[in-house]
Amino acid sequence: MPLSLFIEDWRGWLAEKAAATVKPSRLISAQPGGELPAMLRRRLDDAGRATCDILRELDPKADAPLVHASRHGDTTHTLAMLESLQRGEPISPTRFSMSVHNAILGVHSIARSHHRPLQALGACGDEFDALIYESHGYLMAGYPSVVAVFSESSLPAAYQGVTEHPGTACVVGMRFTLNQGRAITVSKPGQGTSPTPINVLNWLNGETAFLDGRQRWHLEQE
């Protein structure tokens, strides 16, 4: 059965230095988090703050299921905890509490009083495909729209060159529906590459003809 799925709207965020060279339309401010209460904002890095800003813009009434994917999560703070343990020092309770993969969605749900389903994914490079299928599942269950966000934080130097990473902090968010917006279609299995949020932004912006993940994804032009 062909997948029936549409992108109604989208937003992107790139760290300031990357934003100077990559210019997709629909980018939010390079300095994110202005709408978050300060006592919640302090617990998120820039990619987490941008994720919340994008969720707010794409789900202004806080009534859609939200799916958030990140391949690596907040590696800077996770590494800092590991280094503390290595030195035999206690780890930060704040950082421990924020080290779960659904921490950003948790902060967002508190900030916006969001009570719909929330789901956090890590998929070893298959995040985009996973977001598509999970979002489609919520739509098939009867929700009129779903917002999916894919984010990567900046990578600590210790991990650079050891794992795939887009090279800069970046976030992309999409609002999916079953019948409104630009249609997404599949032509054949993809090349098994792992799209990053920047690849997805370029695809949404019409700069690439398709996006290769587990499937080859096409997007109807505006």
């Binding site: 930060s92 309770p93 704040t94």
Partner: peptide, 16 residues
């Protein structure tokens, strides 16, 4: 100031 329960743990650690 509006601190929460996680802050209490963090502050306890800082005092230690």
């Amino acid at each position: 100031l509006g601190l929460d329960s996680i802050d209490a743990l963090e502050l306890g650690l800082a005092l230690q």
